[in-house]
Nucleic acid binder design. Structure first.
Lengths: 297, 297
DNA sequence: ATCATCGCATTAGACTTGCTAATAGTGCTA
DNA sequence: TAGCACTATTAGCAAGTCTAATGCGATGAT
């Protein structure tokens, strides 16, 4: 039972002729005759009264004709919706990023991207690191941006940049005026740390341990913003990626000091589902992310 | 684009598996795979995400799936309506009859028919003779019943019976008490006649002329009932088919007398569209009409 | 990390379907 | 009643569709 046959039937009824209906569907009169005989056989119904000229649909035939028109219209609508959806999705990039990258960095990339590709649509969602991975795995995001990206069977990683880590303290803190601070000077310092299950916490702990430095962890948070607030009330110092405190550094609301730990960096990377073909728009977006941006040396 | 493929697609989406979808449609997994690849190619859309197990419909795929379900449901409804209509029509006989037969005769046939076939439906319409022919030609009636039926290219005739014609007069008329009347006795009589374009009028005129009888036509009508009313006010006498005056004869409201005109009869017949196959119910109905009925010798 | 397993894609060949062209049959009209 | 216009039928051919066998990739357990 195919839709072309139904369309043919509707045309034959509408045009009151096999010949004209066949012509309207670019097939021979014979094909039309056979197709509709088969249709009638499958439905076990006499749809057309051929004993009168011009031919006429029977009562059942008229009812079926109306139903067919509705059906064909519905199918065309579905097809059109599909085409519309394709256009929309092709021009869309869904980005999942961790808070600290999304808030500070993405806006700088998005502006030139949007002006370069005005027809494109970027959906940016800021999530916890674990949720970023999940979003990419579940195909809710085309790309994910996060720190300490790890490739797995299902995910590929494109390294984006290394963010140097710096000491962040309240402007009134004793280490605030220093041009640089050695790791050993943090010994016994009150420290606002990341949650223990985050990769950045493990990296910082490892670096401090290498220099035999022990700090006094007074608070633990899962994101940069809250840590900065804690430092703002002088609850302790912390070690954070420099780009995340650029604003506060410029406004002198927080003191930022280089640390003698050259190996301590936060790697930022892009993750994507393995084996996913890149749509053009997603490819351009990734290119944009890999360009250096003014103000981020 | 055929409906089986759409159903297959819906099943694959529903069961989240090509193999199970194929099984549900009694085809091989290979056929399912090929059919849906072709479907995607025709629609130029990625409906399924095969890179994850179990497979999942894409966003577009889900939308199309819903549309397909609606479509398939609509088609099944149309098919069901068709089957229902067939059942209903198969049990229906549409009868068009002239007044004089329909009113007096049909009810006697319909009662035994209805009790023999309780599931059948009889639609009786009483019309002018010309309209009866028209109704059968236009497929508005399955059978037509009328007098002086004439076969044409489009119509076949089944003779039903011959109705003897009798003299009908007001009970007070001078010929009312007679046991029989000879044609010659009608010479110069006031006469209530049928319209000139009716076959029965021509038959009566011909019979009278054969016996060199001339009557004085005082009124002309196109149906028996009106003629009987005219006789009822003693406007004149008339010659009518005996069955049409059975009631009045019994009730003595009109006087009915045999005429010495054995050749003067009104033939009643059934007409049908030539080449129309008989549905069982129509065949049974015609059989019923051909049976003699009590009270109609 | 590696391998076994499950499930989809692909291929080739048999089969079925659907089409065209030619011809026969039928309703309509002058 | 003859001719015309249209549909049904038939045979042969091209194309599509199916199955069985095999290849390939994802998933999960050891």
């Amino acid at each position: 039972m195919n839709l072309e046959t139904l369309k043919l039937y509707c045309d034959v009824v509408r045009l009151r002729s096999f010949s004209r209906g066949a012509a309207a569907n670019s097939v021979s009169q014979s094909a039309a005759s056979q197709a509709i005989q088969q249709l009638e056989a499958e439905l076990d119904a006499a749809l057309l009264d051929r004993s009168r000229r011009p031919l006429l649909a029977t009562e059942q035939g008229r009812a079926f004709d109306e139903a067919c028109r509705a059906l064909l219209q519905g199918f065309e609508k579905a097809r059109a919706d599909l085409a519309a959806a394709r256009e929309r999705v092709e021009g869309t990039v869904r980005v999942a990023a961790i808070y600290s990258v999304g808030l500070h960095d993405m806006s700088r990339h998005m502006q030139p991207f949007m002006s370069a590709y005005p027809q494109a649509r970027v959906l940016l969602e800021c999530l916890h690191p674990h949720k970023v991975v999940e979003a990419v795995l579940n195909d809710e995001a085309d790309v994910g941006i996060l720190s300490y990206p790890a490739p797995t069977r299902a995910l590929t990683v494109l390294p984006l940049r290394m963010e140097p880590m710096v000491l962040v303290a309240h402007p009134a803190h004793r280490l605030a005026r220093r041009r640089s601070v050695a790791p050993a000077e943090l010994q016994g310092e009150k420290f606002v740390a990341f949650d223990r299950d985050l990769a950045i916490r493990k990296a910082i702990d490892r670096a401090l341990k290498q220099h035999d430095v022990k700090v006094e962890v007074v608070m633990e948070f899962d994101n940069v913003e809250t840590i900065k607030q804690a430092i703002g009330i002088n609850a302790g110092v912390s070690i954070l990626p420099r780009p995340t405190v650029l604003n506060e550094s410029g406004m002198r609301t927080l003191a930022v000091t280089p640390l003698g730990l050259p190996g301590l960096v936060r790697p930022i990377g892009i993750i994507r589902r393995r084996g996913r073909r890149l749509t053009p728009v997603v490819a351009r977006f990734i290119e944009q992310l890999q360009k250096p941006v003014d103000g981020t040396p």
